[in-house]
């Protein structure tokens, strides 16, 4: 939702980044305020996923110029784990499997890392059990998944749900959904989207990165941006997604990169 006089959560200014010496982001701009849901759409290779990894601090991506402020703080100065602890959450396109580490132990470590950062007391295994049981409902997940190794042997849909469960647990300030819809059947998509909608509130913001419009049937964005060749070329409301779906990406290829970003 668009809220009057809302605080700025994320401000990306003229950001350029490369991987293996290959420039991917080329002067990217975007402002996200509290309460808002943004969607970035674009072809494969337009730089959408790179944006999410650069924001999360993946070591393989190098920022070459520009600035990113997260709640007024210089995001690029922080290590990946510090970004996470201060409330930036990335739901992965392909959540990885971590054999031997139990899901519940992992989530407790993550939860306590965030609490410690917030100056709150860390929870022991018993108190944490209560917290996590409550969150399971958000994504309709069976408690048996907690005792299994992180994502090991989970189906594609279960992995995505597990990620959204972590998001529910960590209550981020900014949730970035990187192609969360890929590989999901319609029922799983609905569960995941429903989870995200429950977690969205006036104090946080969501950034959904997607190739297809169908996710946006369930997570309704306030703004839709179109990305091409490392920058945004068009910004509109939710109807822009439908227009893209109808006309295809060829339609926006004609556009010149504009000074977009809200």
């Amino acid at each position: 939702m668009i809220v009057e006089n809302a605080a700025t959560i994320l401000s990306i200014q003229n950001l350029s980044a490369e991987v293996d010496g290959q420039p991917i982001l080329k002067g990217f701009n975007l402002e996200i305020k509290a309460g808002e849901i943004h969607a970035i759409m674009g072809r494969n290779g337009s730089g959408k996923s790179t944006l999410s990894k650069v924001l999360a601090g993946h070591p393989a991506y190098a920022v070459t110029s520009g600035k990113v402020l997260f709640q007024g703080q210089d995001l690029l100065e922080l290590e990946a784990e510090e970004r996470a602890r201060s409330g930036l959450f990335l739901a992965f396109q392909y959540p990885v499997e971590i054999p031997g580490v139990s899901n519940v132990d992992f989530m407790r470590a993550a939860y306590n890392a965030r609490r410690k950062h917030q100056g709150l007391e860390e929870l022991d295994a018993f108190d944490f059990e209560e917290v996590i049981q409550e969150k399971l409902a958000v994504v309709q997940m069976d408690p048996s998944f907690l005792t299994r190794s992180v994502n090991q042997g989970f189906s594609g849909g279960e992995k995505k749900r597990n990620d959204i469960l972590q998001m529910a647990l960590l209550d981020p300030v900014l949730g970035i959904l990187d192609e969360t819809d890929s590989g999901l059947d319609i029922d799983a998509l609905r569960v995941v989207a429903n989870g995200v909608n429950q977690l969205s509130h006036e104090g946080n913001a969501m950034l959904a990165i997607t190739h297809y419009q169908r996710l946006l049937d369930y997570i309704v964005p306030d703004y839709v941006h179109v990305m091409r060749d490392g920058r945004l070329i068009k910004t509109g409301g939710k109807e822009l997604a439908l227009e893209l779906e109808a006309k295809g990406y060829d339609w926006v290829d004609e556009l010149e990169p504009a000074a977009v970003g809200v």
């Binding site: 070591p59 784990e81 990885v96 580490v101 992992f106 470590a109 890392a113």
Partner: peptide, 22 residues
């Protein structure tokens, strides 16, 4: 894996010991 755990606020050293202990 290390990036995944870092993105959840877990440092590289803690991540490795968790994985090794498991």
């Amino acid at each position: 894996q290390l990036f995944y755990l870092a993105q959840r606020g877990i440092s590289a050293e803690d991540a490795v010991s968790m994985m090794i202990a498991g």
